[in-house]
Amino acid sequence: MTLSGATVLILEDEPIIGLALEDMLSRHGASVLFASQMEEAIDLIERERFDSAILDVNVHGALSYPVAALLADRNVPFIFATGYGDRSHPPEFAAVPTIAKPYSAEDIRIALEGRP
């Protein structure tokens, strides 16, 4: 997929980081659906159409894997963003591309588009 013209769901509990991420994606021509809590993200998954997702792993102290499972069920491609450099994902998400904070716009583009 390419970012241009795509709709991306962001799950990020830190508003300042979320805003910057939103801007990065906008600059690449993507539209953004923003959620700062897991319930909000699940709600958006059920109601909205989008092409891919970026999930912060730790959202208000909980892990976002239930949201990831929901996306996997619907075959929506997604990546993880995390501040925990040394944490490994559960086996079912071991192959999911993961970008470490702080990340650049290019990191996100490569992870989402799947090519450098």
Binding site: I16, L19, A20, G83, Y84, A100, P102, Y103
Partner: peptide, 21 residues
């Protein structure tokens, strides 16, 4: 140490976002 690392990374992300904005 893990928690500190997480906070530092998060803070760097915030600083990065502030710089971008």
């Amino acid at each position: 140490i893990n928690e500190l690392n997480h906070r530092v990374k998060n803070t760097l992300s915030i600083v990065q976002a502030l710089a971008m904005q």
